[in-house]
């Protein structure tokens, strides 16, 4: 058998799945995840996941949009080609506001989308988990926890026994 990707275990119902995730978290595993075909409320906390980092990307996008809007209006109407419009000053923070505001929203949206891709490690065309036929059933009715071999605590025998202890069934090792 080739190098191992990790071990997957299935769970019979959502509460068992949920509490098993809490036990994996408490056992100190880091490189692992839960897979289900529907969202389970409270799962991020059960997995011990921190808040998403996407808002940081959104904020950076928004700030750059705001300053970009401000600077293009200043550059065009006050610096590169000073232009009098409607008797108003060459530059004021008031009249470029629609542009600053639109660009803030646009680049915040881009930041959010990009941040979502980056933090989700997308695009990802291949994942070893698809080598397992049982894992493919996750898109149906299977609930799976997978602990990866690159986790520091991973041990082929001990981890398998641990997954059995927390109620996992159909435990199998997935090749990389």
């Amino acid at each position: 058998m080739s190098e191992s990707y990790g071990i997957i275990a299935s769970f019979p119902n959502t509460p068992a799945f949920f509490h098993a995730a809490e036990k994996v978290r408490d056992a100190g595993y880091k490189k692992w995840d839960t897979y289900s075909s529907f969202p389970v409320h409270g799962m991020p906390a059960a997995q011990g996941q921190p808040r998403s980092k996407v808002p940081v990307f959104t904020f950076c996008g928004g700030v750059s949009g705001f300053s970009l809007g401000l600077s293009i209006v200043w550059f065009m109407n006050a610096f590169n080609y000073p232009l009098i419009v409607g008797g108003q000053p060459f530059f004021s923070p008031v009249f470029p506001f629609p542009i600053m505001y639109e660009l803030t929203i646009l680049l915040s949206a881009f930041g959010t989308l990009g941040g979502m891709f980056i933090t989700n490690l997308l695009p990802q065309h291949y994942n070893s988990l698809f080598n397992s036929d049982k894992f493919l059933e996750v898109s149906g009715d299977r609930l799976v926890i997978a602990i990866e071999a690159r986790d520091g605590q991973y041990d082929p025998v001990a981890t398998r026994r641990f997954l059995e202890e927390i109620g996992g069934t159909d435990i199998e090792e997935v090749s990389a």
Partner: peptide, 9 residues
């Protein structure tokens, strides 16, 4: 409100 009045002057 401010902006429309500012622009219309």
């Amino acid at each position: 409100q401010y902006f429309l009045i500012y622009s219309a002057n």
